[in-house]
């Protein structure tokens, strides 16, 4: 089996363009998923029993079915209900919905892990309920959920590779088509795996850095 390094070097501009789309769709989808997941968790906590039950079902349905099936339903099923989506639109919505269920569970656990004593102490000290939520509950929750949130964002980054199946021209699609064009799969797939690996390790390191900084901030305050 030959391995052509020159070929890999010649692919770097195209790979970087694909990487840019991967990062863009990941950041947009990941942030929308986090926001929607926070909304779901907050609605479950503050929205009454009926909302809680409906959203519990939403979370269970999303978490118990594969991302690929959800994506197919959205991309191929969408046009039958008047939802004509471009591949990247389907990818973005799919990533948002899929991620939101996992983030909702992470944030729910975060809310539950904030000691009730802290919340009661804040009320006793004369804070209004809104102040308590803003100054005590949310900051403490944010600190607790940071590690699992970063972990989930890394999982979502890897899920973006699945978007190549519905023809989003991201990193995986770019390099696999170059690989089949030149019949050089070893080169294409090594570069592909290497780029994801670097991106995942860098993101993990950034997450650990943010954790340390935030922990220090919270103790200094």
């Amino acid at each position: 089996m030959k391995f052509d390094v020159g070929l890999i070097l010649s692919w770097i501009p195209a790979a970087l363009a694909g990487l840019e789309i991967t990062i863009a769709v990941w950041l947009a989808g990941g942030l929308c998923a986090l926001a929607l997941g926070f909304g779901v968790a907050a609605a479950r906590r503050f929205g009454g029993a009926l909302v809680d039950r409906a959203l519990t079902l939403y979370v269970a349905l999303i978490r118990d079915t594969p991302f690929l099936i959800q994506l197919f339903l959205l991309y191929y099923g969408g046009p039958f209900v008047g939802l004509e989506l471009e591949p990247y639109q389907a990818g973005l919505i799919g990533l948002t919905v899929y991620g939101s269920a996992y983030f909702a569970e992470i944030i729910r656990a975060g809310f539950e892990a904030v000691p009730v004593g802290h919340q009661e102490a804040a009320i006793c000290a004369g804070l209004t309920r809104a102040q308590m939520v803003r100054r005590i509950l949310l900051p403490e929750m944010a600190l607790l959920v940071l590690p699992p949130v970063v972990n989930m964002q890394i999982l979502l980054l890897k899920e973006t590779a699945v978007l190549s199946i519905v023809t989003v021209p991201e990193l995986t699609m770019t390099l696999t088509s170059l690989g089949s064009e030149h019949f050089a799969f070893a080169e294409a797939l090594s570069l592909l795996a290497g780029l994801y690996w670097v991106l995942v390790e860098v993101t993990g390191a950034l997450g650990r850095f943010a954790e340390r900084r935030l922990a220090r901030l919270s103790f200094a305050a």
Binding site: K158, E159, A161, V162, T172, F185
Partner: peptide, 10 residues
Amino acid sequence: GSPLLVQLLM
């Protein structure tokens, strides 16, 4: 550190 899809293709 790399997507399952990429590993399967490899």
